[in-house]
């Protein structure tokens, strides 16, 4: 536990000086704040921008930031020194993962606050965000672990992030994309957020998200065993 807390604290200090990662955490909450207050279109669904950006935030921020952090530590050898200093790989991943999850939840809270939901709906909103962030974290960690350099991680992260972040938005405008998008967790997160005021979980929501998490977890274990951390 001591090592996990130390890594969490280190990452917090590092992020404050790391614009590339910091911008991932603050960009969508700020965009939500601005667009939700600045753009008013007749017949626009309630909290359209809140849900749109919350979905994009889930598909982008945790995935890119954790992949970037892990790959940078591998590239700059800090991870090798850490592992030699008696930090277990799972402690490192838990430390970094819990930090990114916490930071994304703070961003999610800002987006939720902008949405102006009541307490019960806010709790449901944050619960959905938490599950989405967790799934993206697993996928981002897979990319970070199997990438030897930050550049390599970025080249994998960008297309993956585009799928999970943009496809739910594109599915609003194209029925074919919508049908395909149903199998990815971020689309199901988007649907759940759209029904947040009368949220009733259905088999499709739970099944698709559960399956996405399961596949990500299996891939994570496979990659972790194959590539190791250092």
């Amino acid at each position: 536990m001591n090592n996990i807390v130390a890594i969490f604290k280190k990452q917090l200090k590092d992020t404050l000086r790391n614009k590339t990662v910091l911008i991932q955490f603050v960009m969508f909450p700020i965009m939500t704040l601005i667009t939700n207050n600045a753009i008013k279109i007749q017949e626009m669904p309630e909290n359209f921008f809140v849900i749109l950006f919350a979905t994009m935030y889930i598909g982008m921020a945790p995935l890119t930031s954790i992949a970037s952090i892990i790959s940078e530590e591998k590239e700059k050898n800090t991870l090798r020194v850490l592992i030699m200093s008696n930090v277990k790989p799972h402690e490192y991943l838990l430390g970094i993962g819990s930090y990114v999850w916490f930071a994304c939840m703070l961003g999610g809270l800002v987006i939720c606050t902008v949405g102006g939901y009541d307490l019960q709906t806010s709790i449901a909103f944050m619960g959905i965000i938490a599950i989405g962030v967790l799934t993206s974290l697993l996928i981002g960690a897979i990319i970070g672990i199997c990438s030897k350099t930050q550049m390599m991680a970025t080249s994998i992260t960008v297309p993956v992030m585009m799928i999970f972040s943009f496809v739910p938005m594109l599915s609003l405008f194209n029925s074919t994309i919508e049908k395909i998008a149903r199998v990815i967790y971020s689309e199901q997160i988007s649907r759940m957020l759209n029904q947040i005021n009368s949220l009733q979980l259905n088999v499709e929501n739970i099944g698709v998200i559960g399956l996405n998490i399961l596949i990500a977890a299996i891939l994570f274990i496979f990659i972790f065993k194959k590539c190791k951390l250092s």
């Binding site: 590092d14 000086r17 790391n18 700059k76 050898n77 800090t78 090798r80 020194v81 850490l82």
Partner: peptide
């Protein structure tokens, strides 16, 4: 080690 393993931004 040969390439430090230090956190540059800290």
């Amino acid at each position: 080690m040969d390439n430090y393993g230090l956190y540059d931004r800290l």
